[in-house]
Structures are given as structure tokens and as C-alpha cells.
């Protein structure tokens, strides 16, 4: 009887990313771009600074995206996107969406001042940060998005990262921009919904996407989606949105959070952690979760 079923697709069928791109096997970032473009549609311009996506897209004169791309300098994703938007407005094009697409290094560290400037001017752009928690493109160096306890090439096992991850959503929400949200590649419907919602809003919109990286996290390529899902289910990366810095909404309520050890043990970058260190990470996750719940209740 199953043969009679009709296939119902929960996300748009339109495909703006073609295969043949240069991402590693099981790349979360390429899946994130695929889902984002499904939501935004053909009338989009992407500004990509130096990040994994600068490579994934392909060398000149080829491209794996069906939309215009502007490759810009590392720190200028937000300011380039503001410029592209201003140019489009000058020629009378108000429909085209301008998307700045940067990695966590280009958002949390290097591009932060450009992003903060664009958010302060409330430029009409969508800024999407796909977060793979280190500088994966150049060889897994620590960034301020790297979580507590993680191994990277610049924080080796003996000196693993001792500082927690930067709260970028808190920083962006403090700019009082119209829309700030988190999304995960394991929840495509939620992600497409958020990008569609962002497309309708005017002003700076920031979307933080969790994109696992099998090469840098030393995890199996087939675990990409499982890891992204576990990150949400453990409360490590909750799905929520903030409107005008005031209205915090939790999109996915988790009744019973899974222990963080389940998420950590799938990744080679956390292999060195002892039980007391895992307990320390669990404590940090719990504290973040409580803080988020408090904000969402208001």
C-alpha cells in the first residue's frame, strides 16, 4: 500500500545550488546554503567573505550557485552587503534580497565591527552566520565561537579551549535589530520558515546557523545531521528568535534535555575530556539554558 503514497515535500523544491561544489563529504555549511536559498529564491545576491563558502563555490570562472555572488574581504561581509543594497536601491530595485553569508570567524571575530556598524545603521540586509565553531577553511584554528573544552590545532589537547563560546545572539539582540534567530541544519522546516520570515522584514536581520563540520570536529560524515539534532536536544544550541531585542521566543521546547555527553562523545575534538570536565560543560549548558528560559518567559 505504501506505493500509493504521494510524496509531500515540506520545503520548497526549487534548487539554486547545483551539485559539483567543493565541500567535504557531509558538510553542514553546504546544506545550510541549500536550505537558505530554497527559502530566499532566485532574486537574491550573496556576499561571501573569506570562509569555507569562498572555496566551496568553485574557482573562477565557475560557480555552483545560480544567483549572483560577490566575494569580498574577510572583515567586510556586512559592509559589502550594505553597499550592494544601496546600489540596488539607487537603480530602483527594492525586491532583491541581499544576503551576507559568513562563517563564524568572519562573524564572531573579524567581521564583528562591520556587522555591528551595519546593525547600528539598520541596513536592509540579511546576515547569516553558519557556525562550524573554528576557522575550518584554513585548518581548524580556534575562533571565539569554539566551545569550551574543544580541541583545535591552536588549542591542542593539553591546552584545550578554556573559555566558553561568545554569545553572538545576545550581542546582536542588544543592537535592537528587527530579527535575530538561530537555526539548525537538522531542522530544515524551521530554518526555511525563519529565512522566509526574515525576507519579509525590513532592516538588519541576523540568523545564526549551526553547521557541523566532520573534518574539523573529527566526527563521521554521516553523523552531521545527528550532531546538529543532538545539539538542539541537549540544549547546547537551542532554536529561538528575538524580535527588536525585546521579544524572545523559544521555537522548539524541549521537555527532557539529553545529557551533553551524548553529543560530545560523537566528536573526536572532545575525546580528551574527563568526566569532571564533561560535568563542567554540562553545568555551562544548564546555566545558558536557564538564562534563555528566563528571557523567553518575559
Amino acid at each position: 500500500m505504501t506505493k500509493e503514497r504521494k510524496m509531500t515535500l515540506t520545503i520548497p523544491k526549487e534548487e539554486l545550488m547545483s551539485p559539483g561544489h567543493l565541500a567535504c563529504q557531509g558538510c553542514g555549511a553546504s546544506l545550510a546554503m541549500r536550505l537558505a536559498l530554497k527559502a530566499l529564491g532566485q532574486r537574491t545576491v550573496v556576499c561571501i567573505p573569506a570562509c569555507c563558502w569562498a572555496v566551496i563555490d568553485g574557482p573562477f570562472p565557475h560557480s555552483s550557485l545560480d544567483i549572483p555572488i560577490y566575494h569580498c574581504a574577510f572583515e567586510t561581509a556586512a559592509s559589502s552587503a550594505s553597499g550592494v543594497k544601496a546600489g540596488l536601491e539607487m537603480v530602483g530595485d527594492t525586491e532583491t534580497t541581499v544576503l551576507a553569508w559568513a562563517g563564524d570567524g568572519g562573524t564572531f571575530d573579524i567581521g564583528l565591527q562591520a556587522l555591528s556598524g551595519a546593525a547600528e545603521r539598520n541596513e536592509d540586509i540579511i546576515y547569516a552566520c553558519y557556525d562550524n565553531e573554528a576557522y575550518m577553511n584554513t585548518g581548524i584554528q580556534r575562533s571565539s565561537a569554539t566551545p569550551l573544552g574543544a580541541w583545535t590545532t591552536t588549542t591542542p589537547v593539553k591546552h584545550y579551549k578554556k573559555h566558553p563560546k561568545k554569545d553572538i545572539i545576545g550581542i546582536m539582540a542588544a543592537h535592537r535589530i528587527p530579527y535575530v534567530a538561530t537555526a539548525s541544519v537538522a531542522y530544515p522546516e524551521d530554518m526555511v520558515k525563519k529565512f522566509k520570515k526574515a525576507k519579509e522584514i525590513k532592516g538588519t536581520r541576523f540568523i545564526h546557523i549551526f553547521a557541523p563540520c566532520p573534518a574539523g570536529w573529527k566526527s563521521r560524515p554521516e553523523d552531521t545531521i545527528k550532531l546538529a539534532r543532538l545539539a538542539v536536544q541537549t540544549g547546547y544550541f537551542p532554536l529561538y528568535e528575538v524580535e527588536y531585542g525585546e521579544k524572545w521566543t523559544l521555537n522548539l521546547k524541549i521537555k527532557e534535555r539529553k545529557p551533553i555527553a551524548e553529543y560530545l562523545k560523537l566528536q573526536g575534538r572532545f575525546r580528551h575530556l574527563k568526566d569532571d570536565e564533561i560535568a563542567m560543560i554540562q553545568k555551562e549548558v544548564d546555566a545558558n539554558w536557564e538564562r534563555l528560559l528566563k528571557r523567553c518567559e518575559q
Binding site: M7, I11, P19, Q25, G26, C27, G28, S30, P214
Partner: peptide
Amino acid sequence: KFCPDASIDIIDDWPQINYDYCKGCGI
């Protein structure tokens, strides 16, 4: 939905893998 390489096509309502581009990640 989850293919990061967009190499699963839907042809006549059935999924079909495009072996020209599938990188074999196993997702």
C-alpha cells in the same frame, strides 16, 4: 531534504541518487 550535495533528485515522486555527484557521505 538532507543531502548536502543536492544529488538526490525526485523523479516521478521517487528519490533517485545522482551518482555523478554523490560524494558518499552517508547522511
